[in-house]
Amino acid sequence: MTSPETASFGYEDIPAEEKEARVGAIFSNVARKYDVMNDAMSVGMHRLWKDKFVRRVRPRAGEAILDMAGGTGDIAFRMAPSGAAITVSDINQDMLNVGMERAEKRGLTGLEWSRQNAEELTFPDRAFDAYTIAFGIRNVTHVDRALAEAYRVLKFGGRFFCLEFSTTEWPGFAEVYDAYSHKLVPRIGQMIAGDADSYRYLIESIRRFPPMPEFERMIRAAGFTRTKVEPILGGLVAIHSGWKA
Rank of each mutant, 00 (worst) to 15 (best):
L163H: 10
P171K: 15
L154W: 00
V176Y: 07
E164A: 06
D144Q: 12
I192R: 04
D144N: 08
Y199A: 04
E169I: 02
I203N: 07
S181H: 01
R208V: 10
I192K: 03
Y199K: 09
D178S: 13
C162N: 13
W170A: 07
T168I: 10
H182G: 01
R152P: 03
P211D: 11
V176T: 11
F160H: 01
R200K: 12
I206T: 15
D144H: 12
E175H: 06
G157R: 10
D197M: 02
H182W: 05
L184T: 14
R208F: 00
I206S: 10
E149G: 03
S205C: 03
V143S: 02
Y177V: 14
P171Q: 12
A150S: 15
K183H: 15
V153A: 05
E149N: 08
E149M: 06
I203E: 12
S181A: 15
V176F: 13
L202S: 02
V143I: 15
F165H: 03
R187H: 06
M212L: 04
I192L: 10
D144I: 01
R159E: 12
S181R: 10
E169L: 11
S198P: 05
A193H: 02
R145E: 12
A196P: 06
W170Y: 14
T168P: 07
I188W: 06
P211T: 09
G189R: 01
V176M: 11
H182E: 11
F209G: 07
L163Y: 02
F165V: 09
R200W: 00
K155I: 11
I188Y: 04
L184M: 15
Y151I: 08
P186H: 08
V185F: 03
G189D: 03
I188L: 14
P211Y: 05
Y199H: 02
L163G: 04
G172Y: 03
A146V: 08
Y199L: 05
A148K: 15
F173Y: 11
A150C: 09
F156R: 13
R152D: 08
A196K: 10
I203Q: 12
K183Q: 11
Y199S: 06
R187F: 04
V185D: 03
G158H: 00
V185E: 08
E149K: 04
R208M: 11
G194I: 11
L154P: 05
E149D: 13
Y177K: 11
A148D: 15
I192G: 02
F209M: 04
V185Q: 09
E214S: 10
A196R: 14
V185P: 03
E204N: 06
R207Q: 15
Y201D: 02
L163T: 08
R159P: 00
S166N: 14
G158K: 01
R152E: 06
A150V: 05
Y177G: 03
Y151A: 13
A196H: 04
L147I: 09
F156H: 11
A150T: 06
E149C: 04
